[in-house]
Nucleic acid binder design. Structure first.
Lengths: 229, 229
DNA sequence: CGACCATTTGATATGGATCAAGCGATGTGG
DNA sequence: CCACATCGCTTGATCCATATCAAATGGTCG
């Protein structure tokens, strides 16, 4: 199911703010409203970008690195809501407060956009409003597809995850995962042990190869797609 | 988690299109663009409103009855994405095609809004655009909260469900469920047997009472909230 | 080289699924 | 008005996929 909308997340935010590179913003901040909106910012591995419950004054666009959004239950169980890769926007989910926290998985560069500024721009320029709505709608569709995990087996969840990641990291049929097994487990609602076992199972059935634990080669997409239902 | 955003879904669409009652629309369709947008329509119990894969030309607002959106895997497993009650809007998830199907759980009256008309209106009137974005954002937050089910036990899932339904059906502490155990099971990623057993378990622990199988009294919200983490 | 952390692998436990039967409410035909 | 079929729900017995507990392996960095 995830694979049915492979490019959605990675396309998020491509339309809006294209051409804004941090370098660009940094050196020539002329009067252009869109350029002024995005401020470059860095976060170190595992650093918090925003916390659950904080007011959601900003939207973010990933320039480099990987971000995870998550929520923890009071007894420590953690659910990862999404992984965001370069080009993706995150923070869209929040009307007022953030429901999820966001952390840098690797060192990360993001563009930070003041929500009020974007809203103001959107009210003047309705193409901006439309783009914002389109991005939010796609994010909604992505999360809805995620909800299919609830009725899937461990193999199916991992097949979905691998197809999603492979399609997002355009380097076809080979993925370099930036996240740990624990992150994957918390994303799919499994344990690290089950993730690990299931990966070796997929390897033994020749669906994938594991040159290193973080590098995954899709050897038989058809088989994975079949699992993906 | 679901209970943390209790009113979101039921509030969806309250802002936009308020005052549009089907009767009203039916009898005086004057030139007002918003009123013209919504056309009343009826669906019988279990009737399909739209199908997975159909182009998403319309948005819907529930006037009366209950609607479920769902998706089935090729082997028949069904995941219900959401239940929509009077006042809720659905169909927001779709950029182009519907990813989910929608069916009437009970006899249902809806207002059908042509997406293109709404988009056109939104491009002229940015308060409409803002409302549309706000509704979509809330729906996104709701679905994200749903994703917490992945790491929850059966008891926690049912507690979340009951609190959500009780808060949406403003009649406090008592809910008349319009959906079957099978619908609940498919919404929570459980089986009917587990749903049934878990409800009697909650009844035995005095958290709820079950005057009839479809009527549920919340006797101890605190206990349910505790389960809801 | 040694310490540390991530990952894999093994052994066992368990929550929820599956299979099966019973029960109660609703409706239909005699 | 009652017998009976049907359907939705509950309850019981057993099974199994994944969790949990535990240990080994491997990779990285000082």
């Amino acid at each position: 199911m995830l694979a049915q909308t492979p490019l959605q997340t990675s396309v998020l935010g491509q339309e809006l703010l294209t051409g804004i590179q941090p370098v660009h913003v940094a050196r020539s901040s002329n009067g252009d409203p869109i350029e002024l909106m995005g401020a470059p910012m860095q976060f170190a591995r595992n650093e918090e970008i925003y916390g659950d419950g904080e007011s959601a004054d900003y939207l973010y666009k990933v320039i480099s690195g990987t971000v995870r959004t998550y929520k923890v239950l009071n007894d420590g169980r953690r659910q990862i809501g999404a992984f965001y890769l370069p080009g993706d926007m995150f923070g869209l989910e929040n009307s007022t407060d953030h429901a999820f926290s966001a952390e840098a998985i690797t060192n990360v560069k993001v563009l930070v956009i003041k929500r009020s500024a974007l809203t103001a721009l959107a009210s003047r320029d309705n193409t901006v409003a439309q783009q914002l709505l389109r991005m939010t709608t796609r994010e909604l569709a992505r999360v809805q597809n995620q909800s299919m995990l609830l009725i899937k087996t461990a193999q199916e969840r991992l097949a979905a995850f691998l197809l999603e990641m492979a399609d997002r990291a355009h380097r076809n049929n080979e993925v370099e995962l930036s996240m740990s097994r624990q992150d994957i487990a918390d994303y799919l609602g499994l344990t690290i042990e089950t993730v690990s076992r299931t990966l070796t199972l997929l390897e033994n059935s020749a669906a994938i190869a594991l040159p290193t634990s973080r590098r995954i080669v899709l050897r038989n997409r058809a088989a994975l797609r079949r699992l993906n239902s």
